[in-house]
Write a protein that binds this DNA or RNA. Structure first.
Lengths: 203, 203
DNA sequence: AAGCTATCTTGACAGTGTCAAAATAGAATA
DNA sequence: TATTCTATTTTGACACTGTCAAGATAGCTT
């Protein structure tokens, strides 16, 4: 009588697939996810997933979408949690949080910002929406820090947001992709990055 | 009697494969390269390539290796070509050259620094070597610029090299992977990045 | 001319994504 | 309650993929 949604044969297969798929890629990477094995593990036939996700691509988009929501949530509460910090310290905090997220969910992160979806495949409309929103939040954040003198006011906030995010993203990728391997250095490099990015004097 | 190497049946199949494969990925991306189609286009049977490359992975490593050599070459001659530039201008020049390379050879760049080889697959020993050398060149470069006061002398050169390269890399990836799409902004963002990274005052 | 080895081919296997058509289960309607 | 309708799932099939094992062949060396 509660919200126990058990609509049809399986009982919300869509969600089950999504969770299981996320599980699989967490353990073995995106390339270890096959539609057939996924269906098998859920206990359903090969093509059943195709009635809930148009494509393998669509499934991956759904996972990425969840990733964006998770990240937004993890990052949203930073300012309210540390209201006493200076702008510079807050920025560093933000940077570290971003990198920690990428580090804790490497496979999801890869889906969120990888070519698999954005170049090779085709991003879902709804994925485009949530990702755009995520970036908007970042730009607004940069705008605030810019007003506090952390960044050059001569440049448009958008451009600074693009450049700084690119820097963060690059760092995450290098570690996630196995090019930088020494995990202990991650936070140190991140701190250096943060310090290099902010401008101590105004232009 | 000249160096016309036509050793066996085909006549340096290895090089032919390498070139054709590079061609294919340039046009259709890495995911469009299949060993079978490659063999077909070269006019040889499915498994012939396996006598010149242990794996598909080994073939991709060879392509990446060529990429590193090409990049080293393209970047090496920058200082000698513009000896009159200031350190800051030289750095910007370098940044733009790097990005231009990534932009002109997006698929090769992806192989050079992508998870396909470094995380999922296994980099060849010889690939590890040339890539390590490439990074060494970058660190030495940063070291020089650091001595010229472009970067904080308090930080180790290695760390600055890591952070700055990560920033560059991130920018390249965002464009190569189709997340930033407006190609006209590339150089502008790159210039902003370069300016943000250098330190106008010393700490 | 004989033997040897590097090179290439044929056959095979297990795996992939996904389409079309058939089967089935639950909800809606009569 | 019986029947129709539709959402869901299954079975079969196809064209691909990487790559292993065994056989054939071509060129060099002796």
């Amino acid at each position: 009588m509660i919200k126990d949604k058990k609509p049809y044969h399986h009982g919300d297969l869509r969600l089950t697939l999504l969770n299981k798929a996320t599980d699989i890629i967490r353990q073995g990477g995106v390339e270890s996810l096959s539609m057939r094995k996924l269906a098998d593990q859920v206990g359903v036939s090969r093509t059943a997933p195709y009635h809930h996700f148009k494509d393998k691509n669509a499934l991956l988009c759904a996972i990425a979408e969840q990733g964006f929501l998770l990240q937004d949530q993890a990052v949203k509460q930073i300012p309210s949690e540390h209201p006493q910090l200076t702008a510079a310290a807050m920025f560093e905090h933000y940077v570290l949080a971003y990198i920690r997220f990428a580090n804790e969910h490497p496979e999801t992160y890869d889906l969120m910002f990888g070519r698999e979806i954005w170049k090779t495949g085709a991003p879902t409309e709804s994925l485009k929406l949530v990702s755009k929103n995520s970036f908007r939040i970042w730009v607004e954040w940069i705008e605030q820090l810019q007003q506090q003198g952390l960044f050059d006011s001569g440049e448009p906030a958008l451009r600074i947001a693009q450049a700084s995010w690119a820097a963060l993203h690059g760092l995450c990728r290098l570690f996630n992709d196995g090019i930088y391997v020494n995990r202990d250095d991650l936070e140190a490099i991140a701190r250096t990055s943060a310090q290099m990015l902010i401008s101590p004097s105004r232009s």
